[in-house]
């Protein structure tokens, strides 16, 4: 349990948000061209990182907007929050 600093509403309890999982998984541009392996990679395979992870969150019980978060999954500390479409911060890799 932690606080998330929604870029639109400010700091709120995590229970107001829903997690959208790993961020920056690009939707296939040409779905019909994809092989089974590529589909599996897109749909199912996840980095599931222990450490610094880039992820999507939705402020579902608030402004209902999506945004990105950089969080350390080993201690739940949030390192950065940025809007959809913005470039991920480069100092966390």
């Amino acid at each position: 349990m932690f606080l998330i600093n929604c870029p639109f509403c400010g700091e709120r309890d995590q229970s107001e948000f829903s997690s959208g999982g790993e961020a920056h998984i690009v939707r296939p541009k040409q779905p019909t061209e994809l092989s089974d392996d590529e589909w599996a990679e897109y749909l199912f395979m996840r980095k599931n990182i222990k450490g610094i992870q880039f992820e999507r969150w939705n402020h579902v019980h608030g402004c209902r907007k999506w945004f990105n978060v950089v969080r350390d999954t080993s201690n739940d500390k949030i390192l950065s929050v940025y809007k959809m479409g913005e470039k991920p911060p480069v100092n966390y890799k």
Binding site: A40, F44, K47, N48, I49, T73
Partner: peptide, 18 residues
């Protein structure tokens, strides 16, 4: 819960979320 961590060491990705 740490299966993905071990898999990453071998350069594998698994369909898991911990």
């Amino acid at each position: 819960g740490h299966s993905s961590v071990i898999a990453n060491m071998a350069g594998l990705k698994l369909p898991l979320e911990s």
